[in-house]
Design a protein around this nucleic acid. Structure first.
Lengths: 227, 227
DNA sequence: CGTAGAATTGAACACTCTCAATTAGCGTGG
DNA sequence: CCACGCTAATTGAGAGTGTTCAATTCTACG
């Protein structure tokens, strides 16, 4: 067995522990560097805020949330990373956000200094890093508009459209995250998220077949709600 | 006279009009490319959302707001760019946000395709682009926490600390933007911004000598409010 | 000075939050 | 396979923060 599941009680990758190097591949399909795979259990921290950035990650299977905390525990989730997404890339020495596995999640890792090294000589590598960062920035810009200016219903509609686009399989949207995660992503409470979803169901726009199994019946009306 | 002020009624840089090439310099102190200067009058649009990205800009003097609009006019200001800041850099073909001069503002411009060209061969240039983008992303991440999870008072405190850091001269903070701009930056109404400032003044943390002339009396208490 | 836009302040309202109770869903073990 | 138990999700009622609308004051500038 090449990958390893760390359970919540175990915590994250211990100091000095190297992920198994048996699995090799490429981040973003082309850094041409040695990579490893690693599996994190549900709710396990991958790295903490202000922790040294030692790896760059790519989600192979599962989902990851990145977030910041205030001193009293208020949390803002900046992004959910799903299969294929690259995360954990930094230009400075530290991670500016913490990340956790939303569900059991397998990631591919590349040593950060390997990427750094490649980036000093290869223009294409730096351009890839720029593209990854620019994608995150675009997402952040859209999300600021949502957080600063949209109503609860508009936020939930936007969330559903984003997730619909990113992880709908066979017409069914299977959310990996709980209502609290959604609330912390949208700047709402979990109750408001729940009420908004119920409201969308009453209006016949959705079908909730189980709290996390969503069928989008009227994509167009969701889009118009998105202002 | 090498620079030109366009007044609000005139609008922005007209189609096909090239900024005067008389002034030369460098963006970020080192792209080594030919640049021009241009001056925009107060409230004049520099570029619109989804407009082709033809230039990269650097503020020489003044202040710029970048923002997104919803269809009904709600506005979210993502950032204020002040003297020295680079803005308008895109990896795609279009600007994803609109920008306007907050006050009469002089900018340095570089043709985007000149930057693009330099970036195909010179690793250092791409690294600079990456650094600029990463700085914007870090700002956006911090701002998402503010918009999603902070109270009105915490937002205003954070805003004052940011502006204090970036443009206090001789102990006095001279804001270039109006209350509505601040509100649209912080996800609040202008009235709430005004009330929060009054409240900070009552508590003796600030001294408002004129609505836009602020003396920060107790920086530390502002920092603790910032949670 | 006079005027127009900007900022402040007040009062009532609304949207979202908080707190609480109930229901649903899911994994575990008998 | 079903029952149990725990967590997640829903729903309700009341409270609160920030908004809206309106009036007044301030300030910058012609």
């Amino acid at each position: 067995m090449f990958t390893q599941t760390i359970h919540p009680t175990v915590g994250r990758l211990p100091q000095g522990m190297t992920p198994p190097a048996a699995a090799r591949g490429e981040i973003e399909g082309g850094f041409g560097l040695v990579t490893s795979e690693f599996t994190y259990g549900k709710d396990v921290e991958i790295y903490g805020e202000d922790e040294p950035a030692e790896y760059v990650y790519q989600v192979i299977r599962g989902a990851v949330r990145s977030y910041k905390l205030l001193s009293d525990g208020r949390r803002q989730i900046n992004a959910f990373y799903l299969a294929g997404d690259v995360f954990g890339l930094e230009t400075g020495p530290l991670h500016r956000l913490a990340t956790e596995a939303v569900v059991d999640t397998t990631v591919r890792l590349v040593k950060r200094n390997a990427v750094e090294h490649a980036a000093t000589t290869d223009v294409e590598v730096v351009r890839k890093l720029l593209n990854v960062t620019a994608r995150d920035l675009k997402h952040a810009e859209d999300h600021m508009l949502l957080l600063g200016r949209k109503t609860a219903l508009e936020r939930v509609a936007a969330f559903l459209l984003e997730m619909d686009r990113r992880l709908t399989v066979a017409g069914l949207l299977a959310l990996p995250m709980c209502r609290r995660d959604i609330g912390d992503y949208l700047g709402l409470t979990l109750e408001t998220v729940s009420r908004s979803l119920s409201q969308l169901q009453e209006q016949g726009i959705l079908d909730l077949s189980g709290a996390r199994q969503i069928l989008v019946r009227n994509r167009q009306r969701l889009q118009t709600m998105n202002a």
